[in-house]
């Protein structure tokens, strides 16, 4: 099978898909030349991610990667997400074929952007 059972499960039953009202941070990343896109919304409580939602446009692995990553980030300090690596996202779906690695890149990029946005907003308020 080209994709792992975990990836297929997230693709068929995406967790945390959808919009969020008044998020504390949002971030988008797009994979150039491909059109794959991921957008993340974060709710932050006491410096940690309390809730996450995402939207994606792309092939199956992108949707699955976004879903799997969304589960991994809940409860973690926002600062930590600034350094989120594509490899961690890929690990969350138990690997990606060579020609679909960009799914992890775009998801990690959007989450880093959402974390940065949340931190900037917090500083703006303070």
């Amino acid at each position: 099978m080209r994709y792992s059972p975990t990836l297929l499960d997230h693709f068929l039953n995406p967790r945390n898909a959808g919009l969020m009202r008044e998020p504390d941070g949002t971030g988008v990343d797009e994979y150039e030349g491909c059109g794959d896109l991921a957008r993340f919304f974060l709710r932050v409580r006491d410096g940690r991610v309390s809730e996450v939602r995402f939207q994606t446009y792309g092939c199956g692995p992108t949707i699955a990667a976004a879903s799997a990553a969304s589960e991994r980030v809940v409860g973690r300090p926002v600062e930590e997400l600034l350094n989120l690596k594509a490899q961690e996202v890929e690990d969350a779906v138990e690997g990606l074929p060579e020609d679909r690695k960009h799914a992890a890149d775009v998801v990690a990029g959007a989450l880093r952007a959402a974390a940065l946005d949340a931190l900037r907003r917090r500083e703006g308020v303070a």
Binding site: F11, G33, C34, C59, E98, D99
Partner: peptide, 22 residues
């Protein structure tokens, strides 16, 4: 195509995303 494949249905995609270029 992937969603239908998981239901045992074989159809073909009108666009192909290979190695990051659509």
């Amino acid at each position: 195509v992937l969603g239908l494949d998981l239901k045992g249905i074989g159809v073909s995609a009108g666009s192909a995303c290979t190695a990051g270029s659509v």
